[in-house]
Structures are given as C-alpha cells and as structure tokens.
Simulated scan of single mutants.
Amino acid sequence: MNPLEKLLAAGQLAKAHAEAKKVLAHQPANREALVVLAKLTLLEGKLPQAEELIARLEAQGPSGDAVLLRANIAAQKGQLDVALKGYQQVLAKEPQRAEAHFGRGMMLIKQDKTEQALEALAKAVQSGPDNAVFRYRLGQVQLEAGKDEEGLATLRQVIAQQPGFMPAYLSLSHALASRDDLLGAKRVLEQGLKALPRHPRLLASLTVLSMALRDVNSSYKAASALAAQRPKDPDAQANLAQLMLARGQFPQVLHLCRTMDSLGLATESLKMAEATCYEAQEPPAYDKAVEAYEAGMGLAPDGWRAANNLGQLLLRMPSEPEGQHLPRALTVLEEAVRRAPQRPEPLLNLALALSRTGQEAKAREQVKKVLALPLPETDEVRQEAVRLEQALAKA
C-alpha cells in the first residue's frame, strides 16, 4: 500500500488530501495521487470534480482503479446495479481486490441482501486487514443485522488496530448505549479521549452520556412518557432528543426535530440536536449542520450554546485550503462570548481558535479569563485551559 493509501486507510482524510495535492502539483499525471484525490472528492460528494480526475487517470490507459472509481460514482448516483457490475468486473480480474469486495458489500446492503453483504465485507477485511474503514463498516453492518457480539468485537478490533480512528469510538459507544450499557459507552468515549485528547465530538458525546447516566433507564422512560403526553412541548421534546442522542438514535432524533420544526416549535436545543444528527451522518452533512446551528442562534438571540457549538464545528470541519473556516469560527465564537462573557466554554474555544490563527497574545488573554473564573480544579474546561496556557507558553 502506497503512503497516500495508508493515510486514507487510517482515516486521516485531511492529511491524505493535502499530500495528494502536493504530489499532483509536481507530478500532474501521478496515478496514485489521482486515485486518492478522486476517492476523497467522491467522499465529499463532488462528482464533477471526481469525474475529471478519473478522466485524467483513464487517459493513461485502462485500470482496475478507474473501474472502481466509476463504480463509486454510479453508487453515489443511486445506480446500484451499474455499480455492482463494476465491482464484480474488477473482482473477475483481481479476486483479492479489497476495495472491490468492500464496494460490492455496500451495494448489497442497499439492496437488503444483508448476509451477502456481510460475506463481501468480511472478504474486504480479509484482503485489506490494515484498512480501518473496511473493518469499521463490517462492524456496523453486523450490528444492524442483529449480530451484536460480533459487531461489538469488530468495532473493538478497529480501535485496537487504529487508536486514532474516531468514528469507531462513537459507533461502539452508541451501540453500547442503545443496549443500556451506558457505563460501558462512557468508558469507550474516555478511551477515545486518551487517544484523541480534546476531540470535540468525543467530548460532546461524553457530555450527553454523562447527563443520561444520572438515571439510566428511568430517565429515558420518563422522558419518553412526558414527550408522548406533551407532543407540542419543545422542552419535553428536546429533553427526549438529548437522551436519544446518547443512545445513538439519530434517525429518530432527526424525525423529532423536523416534526417540531414543521409545527413552528423549533428551539435552540432542538436545532442543536438536529445539527448533531447531520454531523453523525456518513459522510457528515456539514452544510446542514451549520444551517441548523445558525437557525438555533436565531431562535435564541441571547443563547450562547448554538454559537459555541457552531464555532467548534467550524474548527473541526475539513477544508481545502486548510484553515478556510477559521475566520468564520472566530466571528461565531466572539459572538458566543458576547452573549455569555462569563461562560468558560466559549472563552476557551475562542482561545483555541485564536491560537490556531497564530494570535497567541489574544489567545493568552482568553485563557486568563477562563482561569480567573471560580471553577474547581477538577473541572474539564479549567484543565483544558491550563494545558492550552502551557502550550502557548512554549509557542
């Protein structure tokens, strides 16, 4: 596996994108870089750009890579039979081609051929054992098929194989939470934060889960009952949405949020839950998540949470060129601080954004404001502020 493919397999998409662009800048016909950049462009749903890259690849002669990429385009267009035919065409010549087994498995899932899909995905893992994405999707499909023990074990293997593969922590945590093992789900997120310190999505999930842990089963049952009794009560629905998020019930949460929106009863909390669902999609629907947070800001002119979360989202969203979303993140986080100047979370996030834009002096000012607040030594935000202060001192 070439270095670019290794980055892709490890889930380091932003780095793979940057490296592929560098290679093509010096070697416009480099096949490996064209293939990887085409794959990444497809992940972003940019079909015209992907087709242009594939055409450049095909100009160098027929190849299994080009057939695979064409099959991926057909899949995104909903042409399942065409895509399946492409994957099978590659497998006829390269029986051990892991990507072809994987693509075939994904098409079979969409055709509700679960057992065949599982078999294809298992072959993909066998042929490409170092690819965390293949194993990750196998685990997800095993869970969807009701093979709980196998699915949980597979997701744990992903984490053991690639400790930095963040989606595996979220999926495993959600799977455990949906089976009422909230303590187990919490431990998985804590493990993820050791491998990926301060990762916003892991922190957000851990926060929601910690809230639910105050009373595991009865809180969910009570929230469900209250929401059923008060279908037009935004607070009751938002409370249920938060507990459902902790259990990984994203489709149900999205339906709930859209229903309340259609009734003209959307709130900041519901829009934030909606945004979380969009970001949890594969691939993440970042544009929709941003729109939901913006709507949440408008619904609560004095609220700081949607603005704070939008700022965090902009900080972690991939972009080309890198750092494209930083100016907007700064603006949004400054607004969050304006709305709640004594809240430590937006102050800390603004400091992080400033540090990423090279404004160390201003970042230090924000950190000092956080540390001046009456927060206990064990408070996570305070501890993070201390770590950032130490990092800035070395800059």
Rank of each mutant, 00 (worst) to 15 (best):
A122N: 07
L314K: 07
E377R: 11
A241I: 09
L4W: 02
Q111P: 01
D233T: 00
D379I: 00
T41M: 06
D302V: 15
L330K: 05
D130E: 14
G45H: 09
T267Q: 03
L354M: 09
L202G: 00
D148F: 14
P341A: 00
V158K: 05
A75E: 10
A300Y: 10
R56P: 06
A9T: 08
L245D: 01
L209H: 04
P129R: 12
L108N: 03
G64D: 09
A340M: 03
P197D: 03
L53D: 01
M166A: 10
G151Y: 10
L203V: 14
H26E: 15
L43C: 08
K368F: 10
F165I: 01
V188T: 12
T41I: 02
L34D: 08
E384S: 15
H26K: 14
R179Y: 04
Q60T: 09
E345Y: 11
R198Q: 13
V208E: 06
P284G: 03
K288Q: 11
Q161A: 05
D180G: 08
P284L: 08
V290F: 14
V367I: 03
S205K: 11
E115W: 03
R137L: 11
L176V: 06
E294V: 07
G105E: 03
S219D: 04
G128T: 04
A160K: 13
R97H: 13
F250K: 13
A160Y: 05
D261A: 13
A75L: 15
H174R: 09
K21A: 15
R31M: 15
G296L: 02
E279L: 10
E274M: 10
E377Y: 13
R258G: 01
L254P: 14
A266E: 09
S269R: 09
V381G: 03
R258E: 10
E19D: 13
K77T: 06
R230C: 09
A195W: 03
Q12M: 15
N131H: 04
I159K: 10
A145P: 03
A145C: 11
